[in-house]
């Protein structure tokens, strides 16, 4: 079955991203397809490549990146939610005249239409938030 996943909360503060990760991983391991994981609201912070968690804890952004690499997972960060929270990819940083960008490997920034498309194309949309 084809799933879409929506993550509405940022890393560490809430369990939402962890639950979404465990669900996504379990679904992939069972042979299901994940059409897209969409990060919205504070969920956009999961895509930060500047996270530096303690060594003995999970690295939430890297964990998503690794899953993306292994399964060619489409990790999409909402551009509107990301911009107002200071999450920019290289192109967007250039366009906005900012001196840095901070999107981790495997994630890419795109519009809210990608969430609606995930709702249309997936057989199930599962929402994780607070």
């Amino acid at each position: 079955m084809k799933f879409g996943i929506l993550v509405n909360e940022g890393p560490y503060q809430h369990q939402a991203s962890d639950s979404a990760y465990q669900f996504t991983k379990a679904a992939l391991e069972k042979g299901h397809e994940i059409f897209r994981v969409f990060f919205y609201h504070d969920g956009v912070y999961n895509a930060s490549r500047l996270l530096v968690p303690p060594q003995d804890d999970r690295h939430i952004a890297n964990r998503w990146s690794a899953l993306s690499k292994e399964y060619k997972l489409d990790l999409v960060v909402c551009i509107a939610a990301a911009q107002r929270r200071g999450m920019l990819d290289e192109n967007e940083a250039k366009r906005q005249g900012k001196d840095a960008h901070n999107i981790a490997e495997g994630f890419h920034i795109s519009g809210l239409g990608q969430l609606i498309e995930a709702g249309i194309q997936s057989e199930r949309l599962v929402v994780f938030g607070d």
């Binding site: 079955m1 799933f3 379990a26 069972k30 299901h32 199930r124 938030g129």
Partner: peptide
Amino acid sequence: DYAGFVDLAAENTVQA
């Protein structure tokens, strides 16, 4: 477990 969660979600439309 998480695999069971996936099964439940596969069987039903999900409302969080």
